[in-house]
């Protein structure tokens, strides 16, 4: 991002805002872990908060909002393969153990 001095001064304010938001969200995610909810819901809440924090870091600190399409494509492809890598092995083991459960006496 070829930022002018004026742009940089403006963005400093957003850096501090994001810092505040990250600190608050850290407290929230710890607090949320004390909630008496099911494991699945707890995982969901924690991951949502982490994703919000992560996107704040990526879009503001890493200036992702100011980048062009090339970089978005690279990251979208990586994210897609990342999802495949996470989901397919889990699905496979889940299906296999499911089948094993069926044959068990």
């Amino acid at each position: 991002m070829a930022a002018s001095a004026e742009d940089v001064r403006k963005s400093i304010k957003s850096y501090l805002l994001v810092f505040g938001a990250l600190a608050v969200l850290t407290v929230i995610t710890v607090a949320a872990s004390w909630l008496k909810v099911s494991v699945a819901l707890a995982i969901f809440i924690a991951l949502v908060i982490a994703s919000v924090k992560g996107s704040l870091v990526a879009s503001v600190f890493m200036h992702l909002t100011g980048e062009k399409a090339t970089l978005y494509w690279v990251l979208i492809i990586s994210a897609f393969f990342f999802l495949l890598l996470v989901l397919l092995p889990v699905l496979q083991t889940w299906e296999t153990s499911h089948l094993i459960d069926q044959v068990k006496p």
């Binding site: 496979q92 299906e95 296999t96």
Partner: peptide, 16 residues
């Protein structure tokens, strides 16, 4: 997206 065709013999389920 094709890697597990090396693993057909590992007892993979039919859907996968």
């Amino acid at each position: 997206v094709v890697w597990a065709h090396h693993m057909f013999l590992t007892g993979m389920g039919t859907a996968m």
